[in-house]
């Protein structure tokens, strides 16, 4: 059951005090995170602070060793990982890839490819795509399912600056069109500090004792007035 909240609308996911421990070391810890419909939430943090592990935990791909993750019932999630290794021996074309997890009409596929600017690509094998093109294809693949929540892991990695602006603009447009929540890892602090977004900061853990340092507590910056 989606939870209604007075000011923010419908809650999509909620992580409460989550942490992941690997071989006795906490990858990240003490993270609280909510994403509401139509909301943009950034996850930022230094290299090695566990950003990717954190969103994978929120997605349910990794089990958390403490805390809990809640998903709204029937929530459709679109996930765009940072970079994925694709087997070079698997023959698969761009359009076939759009049908990997569902069956969509040609017109729907066309529309999703057009939304990310790949409509002129034709139907090549995915192994021939450039890094930026492949990233856009992953985004199109996530979009076609009309997700309630879009989760992106540094989507502008490996894309040049102009491309990065266009990509983030595109993600914002999608957010407004679909009214979906967006959870996104970013390393670009300038962008993160813009209004209309929430920020979750991950701080690397030197200590396992929460009292050892108050800095080990992540900051939940609500620098937004949801306008």
């Amino acid at each position: 059951m989606p939870q209604e909240s007075e000011d923010k609308g419908i809650k999509l996911v909620s992580a409460t005090n989550i942490g992941v421990n690997k071989g006795g070391r906490w990858i990240f810890r003490y993270v609280d995170l909510d994403v509401y419909e139509g909301e943009l939430v950034y996850v930022v943090g230094a290299n090695g602070s566990g950003k990717t592990t954190c969103i994978k935990t929120v997605l349910g791909l990794i089990a958390c060793d403490e805390g809990s993750v809640w998903h709204a019932a029937g929530l459709e999630i679109g996930y765009v990982p940072q970079r994925i290794a694709v087997s070079p021996t698997l023959p698969i074309t761009v359009r076939r890839m759009m049908n990997l997890a569902g069956r969509f009409a040609a017109a729907q596929i066309e529309a999703a490819l057009e939304a990310v600017g790949l409509e002129r690509l034709g139907d090549p094998q995915i192994t021939t795509l450039s890094g930026g093109e492949f990233q856009r294809l992953l985004l199109a693949r996530a979009l076609i399912h009309k997700p309630g929540l879009l989760v992106l892991d540094e989507p502008d990695q490996g894309v040049d600056l102009a491309g990065s602006d266009a990509l983030l603009e595109l993600i914002n447009k999608i957010r407004h069109d679909l009214n979906c929540g967006v959870l996104m890892i970013s390393h670009d602090l300038d962008r993160v500090m813009e209004p209309d977004s929430d920020v979750v900061v991950l701080i690397p853990h030197e200590h396992d004792d929460p009292l050892a340092s108050y800095a080990a507590k992540p900051v939940n910056l609500a620098c937004s007035s949801q306008t």
Partner: peptide
């Protein structure tokens, strides 16, 4: 077939799609 091909391309994407 469908989930197997999806998982072959990427297991995490397949898992998030509920496959």
């Amino acid at each position: 077939w469908k989930p197997l091909v999806a998982a072959t391309l990427n297991e995490e994407l397949a898992a998030v799609s509920g496959l």
